[in-house]
């Protein structure tokens, strides 16, 4: 790891002061992705701004049909949270399936969504549920947030503070994980609101995306069988040593079917 300075501000304003004045600063949430990348010297920063002491980034609350989760809430907290398990169980199940228990004790929702790894889990939930990403500057609709591989709408002087999830009538998540790393080869989060279904696909391409054909079919019929007729064009899918494009395209209807089965369970 290249050397850096470490800061642990107690307020969002203190964090922003460092973020805006330092040469090459980087926000540190749980560090479960960032520190691994820094150890490999894939990335280097002048200062790591540890967000753990900022109370405003914590907390889970439900207001009417909106579930709000602070950016620094850890995966293990989401997985175990009684209200999340009751009101949006698909999200608790998603959190419970990230990496392993020790990683879930450090990793945070905000860190995952700010990083936007194509094989990460949370972006699929954020996009399928049409969540709102709150920052110190503005509220960003999920549809405008995910811009590409590891790319988001977040500006350099912007800190993701919380995410608000509209509570759906039904939702389910299923991923085909790589058997060794656990990263998503192909995943789908389906969410039903009234007679509309939103479908977000992760792992298969360079960035999480919604699929109009799948949403049309699943809006007309919210049933596992509705996934059987779906076809995906592998053209823009990811091709790497773990899986080819064609494989990802072929497996996706089955992934969606299982996500639907979970949503209806």
């Amino acid at each position: 790891m290249y050397s850096f300075e470490y800061a642990r501000p107690n307020t969002l304003n203190e964090a922003l002061d460092i973020l805006c004045s330092d040469v090459e600063p980087r926000l540190l949430a749980g560090g479960q992705t960032l520190l691994a990348a820094m150890k490999h010297r894939l990335t280097a920063h002048s200062t790591l701004i540890d967000l753990q002491a900022i109370d405003a980034l914590r907390g889970v609350s439900v207001d009417g049909a909106i579930l709000r989760i602070g950016a620094m809430v850890r995966h293990a907290e989401v997985a175990a949270h009684i209200e999340i398990r009751g009101r949006l169980p698909a999200l608790a199940v998603l959190a419970e399936g990230i990496a392993d228990p020790s990683v879930r004790n450090m990793g945070t929702m905000g860190g995952s969504v700010a990083n936007n790894d194509p094989a990460a889990d949370y972006p699929a939930a954020v996009l399928a549920l049409g969540a709102t990403i709150h920052t110190n500057l503005r509220d960003i609709p999920a549809d405008d947030y995910f811009l590409g591989m590891f790319a988001t709408a977040l500006a350099r002087d912007e800190i993701l503070t919380a995410i608000s999830f509209p509570l759906p009538d039904a939702a389910g998540y299923f991923k085909l994980p790589h058997p060794a790393s656990g990263y998503v080869l192909a995943g789908a989060f389906v969410a039903r609101f009234g007679d509309t279904t939103r479908v977000a696909i992760n792992g298969a391409g360079p960035c999480v995306f919604r699929d109009a054909a799948a949403e049309g079919a699943l809006s007309a019929r919210f049933h596992p069988d509705a996934a059987a007729g779906l076809h995906f064009d592998p053209e823009d899918f990811t091709e790497d040593l773990h899986a080819g494009k064609d494989y990802r395209a072929q497996v996706l209807p089955h992934v969606i079917r299982r996500a639907l089965t979970r949503a209806l369970a």
């Binding site: 560090g31 520190l35 540890d50 753990q52 020790s102 990683v103 450090m106």
Partner: peptide
């Protein structure tokens, strides 16, 4: 809480 100490800074 159990954590993997190879991926936590001492400073954290």
């Amino acid at each position: 809480r159990a954590v993997k100490s190879c991926t936590v800074l001492a400073a954290q």
